[in-house]
Design a protein around this nucleic acid. Structure first.
Lengths: 225, 225
DNA sequence: ATATGGGAATTGTTGAACACTTGACTCTGC
DNA sequence: GCAGAGTCAAGTGTTCAACAATTCCCATAT
């Protein structure tokens, strides 16, 4: 008796998932104002359900509510980026340290993420590439074997992703990041933790610098207008 | 023009706060089932508002929803406790390392928490003592100067607190924990980070052992019936 | 004793209503 | 012109009432 995919998720959760994806894929860029009635009618649900969904996403940090002024897609500031990257160092480096030999399952999944990453880069699909990139790092966190930490980390990287999908391909080259990840994976499988940590730390610094630079440009251009 | 304390918080948030407090103070012990209509009428709000509040608290991990079965106060398992304590080590120890000389404000607030702790213990107010104990540790996290981390940590300790307020005073002696905290604070002010970290690590291990033991007893007693 | 149907109770979702806030717009009086 | 008061539409916050869907309990039949 193979119970079919009966919809066991509430409508509100489904709406939240839809919106989450649209935000993370850059379809709804930061700052976009969302009105309850139009969303409700376009999604075919009631206003109350939409409100529950926005409540979820605002607690995740993807939406920002201001009383009587509605919700809008959150805007990542430079301080936010700095804060998130400090957490990445704090959590990812010890994750490598926590990696054990019996974590072959995680390593295998990291390999799949790596392959997806490469494919996305070949197909010049920046959104997909970013998704795989950050998924790779979430898998790193999995070495901690800690559900609470992992869900927190996914939330964190979600916020980051919101900012990263906006970077213009002309100003940044995602393809260059594949080798670094591949090397990290290799060092992990070989158990060369020490070198892996230094490489990872370097990669995180690079990544932050790159994102910060792009955001700086964007803000300067926005201010110029 | 001193603008009065105009209620700028939504009713749903206020309801969430009320419930949160009742849960954290042990007034609503783990496992308690909460029904929407009774809550709504007793609080004088609508059912929708109650639903929003429970949505908030379930995302915080204090309530657990199961579809069509309602919400209940979350029950902390031994695995949960282990998971949370691993995070406490992961986050509090580096916090001490991050402490700088210009963190006098945090140290001052820690001293106040310490005083509150001592008063609560003198007054044999276990709930208040636990609150100050955990607040002290939240302040430790503040050395990271990271809002996201701090709010995550408050959520974590909230879950723990839910379990701690239940321990019977006869089986545990909160008064014994005051000196350790006082020493930690002292080591921090003196800048003796190294010794502080080892003491803190020891304290965390002790704390986990104590809580786990009490929970084991409770579960054994519950299973016996 | 085990299953098999009802219901009753409760949650999930909807739609409509109303109070309140906000922001923009207009209309002054200077 | 323009600063400020009044006006008003649009949108959110909240309530209420209804109905659909699901679970749980219990009586009944086998």
């Amino acid at each position: 008796m193979e119970l079919a995919e009966i919809s066991r998720v509430s409508v509100a959760d489904q709406v939240a998932s839809i919106l989450r994806q649209r935000i993370l894929d850059g379809e709804l860029p930061p700052g976009t104002a969302l009105q309850e009635v139009p969303m409700a009618t376009s999604l075919g649900v009631s206003r109350n359900t939409v409100r529950e969904a926005t409540r979820i996403l605002s607690l995740e940090g993807l939406l920002k509510r201001s009383a009587h002024r509605g919700v809008a897609v959150a805007r990542l500031s430079l301080e936010d980026v700095a804060e998130i990257y400090r957490l990445r160092h704090l959590l990812e480096i010890p994750a490598v340290r926590a990696a054990k030999m019996d974590d072959a399952d995680v390593l295998a999944e990291m390999r799949r993420a790596l392959e997806g990453y490469e494919e996305a880069v070949e197909g010049v699909d920046w959104v997909r590439a970013v998704r795989f990139d950050l998924h790779f790092h979430t898998l790193l966190i999995r070495f901690h074997r800690n559900r609470r930490l992992e869900s927190f980390y996914e939330k964190l990287l979600g916020e980051l992703r919101m900012g990263m999908v906006l970077v213009d391909l002309r100003h940044d080259n995602p393809a260059g990041l594949v080798p670094v990840h591949r090397r990290i994976h290799q060092l992990l499988t070989n158990g060369e933790a020490e070198e892996c940590r230094t490489l990872l730390a370097q990669h995180l610094r690079d990544s932050e610098t790159r994102l910060t630079a792009v955001m700086d440009q964007r803000m300067a251009r926005a201010a110029a207008k």
